[in-house]
């Protein structure tokens, strides 16, 4: 049998690699994951885990003040392992009532891995190509 492909559309999708963020910043708690095997395992048991606790928008979306997700609206990890849109947590920490605490657990907010990755290397957004 012969198949002639007349046409195809390549589609790329990305999402923040939440686990990579934790690994990078929390080597103690994180499970090392081999590059290839994380393809299908990221289905979360709880959808709520995938939204920023402050604005309740998906991590892969952007904070309400931004228009486009991605590098323009990055995520930030605390040493407490909680993740927020960077803009959301900065806005909160700027308020007096925040007392500089993580809004999830009220521990003092410490940005994990204070040596943040350079802007052109975000915490490994995952690339996947699919043929439709």
């Amino acid at each position: 049998m012969k198949i002639t492909i007349n046409n195809y559309h390549a589609i790329a999708l990305w999402r923040w690699n939440l686990k990579a963020g934790l690994q990078q910043h929390q080597p103690a708690n994180a499970q090392p994951t081999a590059e290839g095997e994380e393809e299908e395992e990221e289905e979360d048991d709880d959808d709520d885990d995938d939204v920023c606790g402050i604005c309740r928008v998906a991590y892969d979306g952007c904070c309400p003040d931004c228009k486009t997700p991605g590098d323009e609206c990055p995520l930030i990890w605390g040493e407490c392992t909680h993740v927020f849109h960077m803009h959301c947590i900065i806005k909160w920490l700027d308020t007096e009532s925040s007392k500089q605490q993580c809004p999830m657990d009220r521990r003092p907010w410490v940005t994990a891995g204070a040596a943040a990755p350079p802007p052109d290397a975000p915490p490994a957004p995952r690339q996947a190509a699919r043929v439709a």
């Binding site: 909160w92 009532s97 925040s98 605490q101």
Partner: peptide, 9 residues
């Protein structure tokens, strides 16, 4: 008041 945090709803 003092214990408000934005993750509450």
């Amino acid at each position: 008041r003092e214990d408000w945090k934005p993750v509450l709803n």
